[in-house]
């Protein structure tokens, strides 16, 4: 069978990262000559559901799984995927998907791989390209078992165009088994209302060179002028200048926005590992030899303290 399944957590909505997973699934299913099944954990809004139904061949909604509990959700997903005999199962690279994917692969008799940025389907085994060695190298991994379970780097995949046909949206046929060995008893969001950093189209990021927490206020003001989200390097997070959820890098979030503006970030490989797949990288740094510039389309060698306020004015003026 050449069916492809995408597993989507409804809580994220049909955001850009989720659209990328749907797009990757659509193209892979078409390349394999199979059907695209979407399994929803929780329910989308009517608008988001319609958008998904215009891309997938089948949509099943498991409202029972809106409250994520690791063991219950894994057992349920296994139950839903198994009868479809998928060739591939694709997920996003959020916390829950990463926690589930290798175990789901194991239970389905397949193999999993992390952080895919490209899927190659023309050989015997599905192949997945991904960054390794902190972004210093790129590996192509051949998954020897079926199904191939892959979680995808957010934004590395283009959305698919809506089709003229619309999939039926049906409730998932599910027998839930409760497993009380683990239970999530409290959830706390530190960035309520904001989109996921992985989903941001533009990111303004600050590093060690900022020297303290205050300059992040200036970055926020700058970011606001271009609808960007603010992120940070590990050094800035470790110093406590901003919340740990802002961290981009090998030990933080892996992002691939359309524009990544690095402010006072030298570009250690730890940081590059999290953002080098960005479409355009630009930097503000006093050191022309800083490694970050090797990844930049354009940049300015100046003190951020002088550049940021002026840049904010100019971008704000252009908005009028």
């Amino acid at each position: 069978m050449n069916n492809v399944i995408i597993c989507l957590f409804a809580s994220a909505g049909f955001d850009r990262a989720t659209q990328g997973v749907a797009g990757a699934g659509r193209r892979l299913a078409d390349a394999l000559g199979g059907q695209l099944h979407a399994i929803m954990l929780g329910a989308f809004t009517a608008t988001d559901e319609a958008a998904l139904a215009a891309i997938a061949d089948h949509v099943s909604v498991a409202t029972e799984l809106a409250d994520y509990q690791p063991e219950t959700c894994l057992a349920a997903l296994t139950q839903l995927c198994q009868p479809l005999a998928p060739r591939a199962v694709l997920l996003s690279n959020d916390t829950y998907s990463q926690e589930l994917a290798p175990r789901l692969a194991f239970r389905l008799g397949g193999s999993a791989v992390a952080d895919g940025v490209e899927l190659i389907s023309h050989s015997e085994h599905l192949q997945v390209k991904r960054a390794v060695y902190g972004g210093k190298a790129v590996a192509t991994i051949a998954l020897k078992r079926n199904p191939a379970v892959v979680w995808l780097r957010a934004r590395a995949f283009e959305p698919a165009a809506p089709r003229d046909v619309t999939a039926n949206v049906e409730p998932a046929a599910l027998t839930l088994t409760t497993n009380s060995a683990t239970r999530i008893v409290e959830r706390k969001s530190e960035s309520a209302g904001e989109a996921r950093l992985e989903d941001a189209q533009i990111i303004v990021s600050g590093g060690r060179g900022l020297g303290g927490p205050e300059p992040f206020e200036d970055l926020k003001a700058l970011a606001a002028t271009i609808n960007a989200q603010v992120a940070a390097s590990r050094a800035a997070c470790d110093a406590g200048w901003c919340p740990p959820t802002w961290q981009v890098g090998q030990t933080g979030k892996k992002v691939a926005p359309g524009l990544y503006l690095a402010v006072a970030i030298s570009g250690a490989s730890q940081h590059l590992a999290g953002m080098s797949d960005s479409k355009v990288v630009a930097a503000i740094n006093t050191d022309a030899d800083a490694p970050i510039f090797k990844h930049c389309r354009f940049g300015i060698v100046e003190d951020y303290k002088k550049v940021v306020p002026l840049l904010r004015e100019k971008l704000a003026a252009a908005r009028q």
Binding site: A137, A139, T140, A142, K144, V281, A288, F293, E302, V307
Partner: peptide, 28 residues
């Protein structure tokens, strides 16, 4: 479970263009 089919160092075709100008104002 899986095999590494290829491992390579990506060739970077980006060349950073540094903005130029006589003053900070022009560069920004």
């Amino acid at each position: 479970y899986y095999a590494v089919a290829d491992l390579s160092i990506p060739v970077k075709d980006v060349q950073c263009e540094f903005v130029t100008g006589d003053s900070l104002e022009q560069k920004v």
